[in-house]
Design a protein around this nucleic acid. Structure first.
Lengths: 339, 339
DNA sequence: TTGTAGGCGTTATCAG
DNA sequence: CTGATAACGCCTACAA
């Protein structure tokens, strides 16, 4: 079949001619301004329909210096992107508040260095009026570019090396500490951790919270590091942990996916939770209710995180200043049957 | 903290002044055109760095009538969006080929009617040069608007009520038939189906394939309809099926998530796979390898689906015509232990 | 309430 | 190779 080609577009001039008014008047009704006669308005509306007019965004953006769009930057290592249980909820949360304010959310994924430079120039080129960035890592080129651009922005999570950009997050450290303490309270004596994402604040903080909780009972040999917050990392991590020490009776996993993998690895060697080992996760994602047994974990308000980030950007767009640079949302422990 | 405000931007005029050349020359080096002296080029580059120039996209788009961006429309019922195992892979596939061609992929989710109209005008307003649409349903306003707009486009999946827009998909009907036949070959006598998404072609076709395979042995009472391709629907569907007929010994689920739910529902009543009931799924998503036992299912080449769709759009952008309106990619049966 | 006209920042045409 | 000089489509004072 022949290639599709955009049809020739009608301009304000065409509408004006058909409606028998001036371009100025057409523009005014298009923008819903007051001071237009009913006669003019109806004539214009009819003409718009007749010629099939749609406004040219580029021309409008050029003069108004606004796009009405807000970018969402998602960069995760390929595989993680497909796994992360929070991104979807955060996205929907952002979209909900932006939609309400009539902004168009556009999501940009960066999956390679090439993507990175293209996205950076998209952002600074004027395609968007603001941006929210998810899971920036240290030394993140896009985060840096945005910070420098002065573009109204907000982070979900807090990249440690960037200042002057507001953010919302959860207190990973306190939450990790709390859930670990809860696990200790069940009487476990040798508690290990499968720690992922140590190249970002969330991963680091969860490990720190774990350490906090254990105090002098902390034994570094019971911490195994894995690269991803993924199920496969959970399997590998649990195997490694059991190799190091087969008397482990409790495990804190950096994420529910990891915890699920750990449970599977345990079953493979005839161990079960909570009987042999108490296992707790993090996220309260879809995984949590589907493992056998269901996971005790930390509930993370992903949707709300998105909403708050969006509100932060909106505030700046409206010239309002935001109270504090960063704020943390409450997490809660959800205790099920895995520990 | 005070609101962030975009810094005042330098224009081509500023660069021209600093470099001591004309705007025309600046524009030429910016666009990497030939016929510019080395002297001019270096002077301009230095000036660009000095004044921190970044090109204004709106102005450029206005005159070139292009944006360099391509939209990806995702509309799923809220919950499904979070569950769909294919969307991520399709997205990454599309992005890979578009990135290669230096196009910026921008994803737009429609999660409400309000989103729908905003997205439609975003698309037709010139923000994008082309669009790929995932999982359009019948009577889909955006699909219709795009079809009408003449915008280079491609569908992943085939909305039955839209013609003239190329698409790529899989042959859901044949695949469903094949996997059902495979299930029959294991000797199952009473095979039921948990059918989801009957408001879209994929859901309809999977049911049709199931019916094809069974032939006269088809019994409509063994088909239970559920709304979503989700785990929760699988639980509900399996319970209903067992209520209808407790002698069922085989089940074809419309998706892996459903199959996983079915497995859980079975376990709740003391049934297991493949011993009591053989269960097969569809998608070969992450679910498939994590259920107990792992699922026998249909592998769907999601990444490739995305790549092909992107290529379809690219072809039209370059004015090439596409061979056929629709094409189907190969699926393969992956036989594991659930049947 | 309406028309007129200038300008937003770039690209592109056309002499030089 | 380079510099003027029109557009591109729209918004917005300003004048009427």
């Amino acid at each position: 079949m022949p290639p599709r080609r955009p049809v020739q577009r009608a301009t304000i001039n065409d509408v004006a001619r058909v409606a028998g008014v001036s371009r100025g008047t057409v523009s005014r009704v298009l923008n819903g301004e007051t001071y237009v006669s009913d006669a003019a308005r109806t004539a214009v509306e009819a003409a718009v329909a007749e010629v099939g007019y749609v406004r040219n965004a580029a021309a409008r953006n050029l003069v108004t210096r606004q796009s009405g769009a807000i970018g969402l930057i998602v960069h995760e290592p390929h595989s993680l992107f497909l796994e992360d249980p929070n991104i979807g909820s955060i996205l929907l949360g952002i979209n909900a508040v932006l939609s309400e304010a009539d902004y168009q959310l556009v999501s940009l994924v960066v999956d390679s260095d090439r993507d990175g430079v293209r996205v950076a120039s998209y952002l600074t080129g004027g395609y968007v009026d603001g941006v929210v960035i998810i899971s920036a890592r240290e030394n993140d080129p896009i985060g840096l570019a945005v910070a420098r651009s002065g573009l109204p922005a907000a982070f979900v999570g807090h990249p440690m090396d960037i200042e002057g950009v507001p953010y919302v997050g959860i207190d990973n450290r306190s939450a990790a500490r709390a859930v670990t303490e809860r696990l200790m309270a069940t009487g476990r004596q040798r508690i290990g951790m499968i720690a992922a994402g140590l190249d970002r604040d969330s991963g680091q903080d969860r490990l720190a919270g774990f350490t906090d909780a254990l105090g002098d009972r902390f034994d570094p040999r019971l911490v195994v590091e894995v690269p991803l917050f993924a199920h496969s990392s959970g399997i590998a991590g649990m195997r490694e942990l059991l190799t190091h020490d087969d008397r482990v009776d409790g495990v804190f996993a950096s994420s529910d996916a990891i915890a699920a993998g750990a449970l599977d690895a345990m079953r493979d060697v005839g161990l079960s939770a909570p009987g042999d080992i108490g296992v707790v996760g993090f996220d309260d994602s879809a995984w949590a209710r589907r493992t056998q047994p269901p996971l005790s974990t930390v509930h993370q308000p992903a949707d709300l995180l998105g909403r708050r980030a969006a509100e932060l950007v909106l505030a700046q767009l409206e010239g309002r200043s935001v109270e504090a640079e960063g704020s943390f949302l409450e997490t809660t422990i959800v205790w099920r049957d895995s520990a």
